[in-house]
Nucleic acid binder design. Structure first.
Ligand SMILES: [Mn+2]
Ligand SMILES: [Mn+2]
Ligand SMILES: [Mn+2]
Ligand SMILES: [Mn+2]
Lengths: 216, 216
DNA sequence: TATAAAATTTAGATTAGCCTAAATTTTTAA
DNA sequence: TTAAAAATTTAGGCTAATCTAAATTTTATA
C-alpha cells in the first residue's frame, strides 16, 4: 500500500503534531534522522498523494486520510509492544526497536487478531494509549510529576522520555506505570523532588520528575 | 544487516536447491517474480558479498554463510506461521503472505523468544521442518501419497503444494497433517486414488495424491 | 557437428529515497 | 525597518533494485 518510508514520515508528523502542535521540515528531519532536503522531497510526494496539507515554507498537517494511516501505524507499534512485553517477556526498555519494524507488517486482520489475543489493551507498556481499529484513541490528560504540589498524590501513567536509559532507571527505582506516588518535599533551591511510593521513600531529580507523567 | 531483497534471493535460492538440486537464473526470476536480467545483477552482488558461489552461465549455490542466512529466514517464516495458526487462530492456508513479511523482522532475540513461547515446535503448520537457532534442520524423508501401494498405510506429514486452494481442499476433506490414510484402491486407467482415513472413505485425484506427502 | 533454440548476461534507462551545496524565503533582532 | 540568522527549498547527483532490448553463451537437435 504505502512504503515503509512513507509510513515513517506520516507517523513522525503525527507525533510532532501531538507533542508540539506543529511539524516543520527540520523537526521531521531530526526525528527521522534524515536531512531537510530529503524531507522536502517527501513532503511533495505525500502532498501529491493527499496525505498531508503542505504549503512551501509553512510546515505541514495531516489530512484525514494521512492521520488515519498514522494512527494505524501507532496502533500496530503499541500492540506489538504489548505482545513483546506480556507474551515474550521483554522489558519495557527493550521493545521499541522491534516494534519499529513490526509496525510495518501490513495485514489489518493480523493486527486485529493480535489485539484480541492481547485482550484489547487500552495502553501500551509505556502508558501510551492504543488506537482502536477505527483509529479512535483515548486522549489522556497527564501532567509531569514535577507539577505535583507538596503532599499531593498521583498515579504514574506514562513517560515523556522513552529512552532505554530512562526506562531502566525507572524500573530499577520501581517508579513504574500504576504506582502511586506522593510528593513529600519540593525544594526551590535544590534540584530534587522527594516522594514516597507504597514501599519506599526516595529523591529524584527535576529532570526525572519532568519525564514521569501522572494521571490527573 | 541485509536488505529484504537480498534475503528473498537467498531464500529462493535455498528452496530451489532443496527442491530441485539446482538454482538457475530463470528459476530464481520465476520464483521471485522478477526478470532474468535483474537476477543476474543481484547474483553479482551476492557473489561479491560471498553469500553465493557464482560463475557466469553456470547457476549458483549458497556459501556456508549464505545458507545460514537463508536458514535463518526459513526459521523465522515457519515459526511465525506457527504463531499465526496456534495463537491467532488463522487457518493454514491464510498465513503464508503474512509470514513473508514477518520473516524479515531482524531481531534474533525476538525469534528465539517466539520459539520458546511456541514450545520449540519441530514443524510448521504445513509439516515443514523448522531450523533451530543454529540453523540445523531435520531432513524429513517424505513420499507422495501417490507412491503408496494398495492396502498400504501412512501418516500425512506434509504438502508439496502450498497454495491456499490446495490447502483449503485438504482441510475440507480432512486430509490434514497427522491423519493416517490407507490406500484402498489404485487404478491404472482411471486417474484417481481411493483411500480411507479414520473417519471416512474417499477418492482423490492423482494430482492431489501427488501433492500429499507421507512420512516414511 | 553445425545450427537453431534457450538461457544468460550486458547495455542503457527508470524510480524511490537519500545526499551536499547553493539559492530562496521567513524570522529574529539590532 | 532592515540586516543577519535560521529555515526551507531547489539543483544536481548517488545507490539499490528494477526493467527492456540487444548481445553472448550454452544446450539441444537435425
Ligand atoms: Mn515504542
Ligand atoms: Mn510504547
Ligand atoms: Mn509459508
Ligand atoms: Mn509453511
Amino acid at each position: 500500500m504505502h512504503s515503509f518510508t512513507e509510513e515513517n514520515y506520516l507517523k513522525a508528523i503525527y507525533h510532532l503534531l501531538v507533542r508540539r502542535q506543529s511539524a516543520t521540515t527540520n523537526d521531521i528531519a531530526a526525528s527521522l534522522g534524515t536531512k531537510a532536503a530529503s524531507v522536502t522531497d517527501m513532503l511533495k510526494k505525500l502532498s501529491d498523494k493527499k496525505l498531508i496539507h503542505y504549503a512551501r515554507y509553512q510546515g505541514v498537517t495531516l489530512t484525514t486520510n494521512g492521520e488515519s494511516i498514522a494512527l494505524g501505524i501507532v496502533r500496530k507499534h503499541r500492540l506489538w509492544e504489548c505482545f513483546l512485553v506480556e507474551k515474550l517477556n521483554f522489558k519495557w526498555d527493550e521493545v521499541h526497536d522491534m516494534a519499529e519494524e513490526l509496525e510495518h507488517i501490513s495485514s489489518a486482520k493480523l493486527i486485529d487478531r493480535l489485539d484480541e489475543f492481547m485482550g484489547c489493551p487500552a495502553y501500551d507498556p509505556h502508558g501510551d494509549p492504543i488506537p482502536n481499529n477505527k483509529g479512535q484513541i483515548i486522549n489522556q490528560q497527564l501532567q509531569p510529576a514535577l507539577q505535583l504540589s507538596k503532599h499531593q498524590s498521583g498515579i504514574i501513567a506514562g513517560v515523556a522520555d522513552h529512552s532505554p536509559a530512562f526506562l531502566q532507571y525507572l524500573e530499577k527505582t520501581q517508579l513504574i506505570i500504576g504506582e502511586t506516588i506522593t510528593v513529600t518535599d519540593l525544594s526551590d533551591y535544590d534540584i530534587s523532588v522527594s516522594l514516597k511510593t507504597t514501599n519506599k521513600e526516595m529523591n529524584i531529580s527535576r529532570e526525572v520528575a519532568k519525564n514521569i507523567l501522572i494521571a490527573i
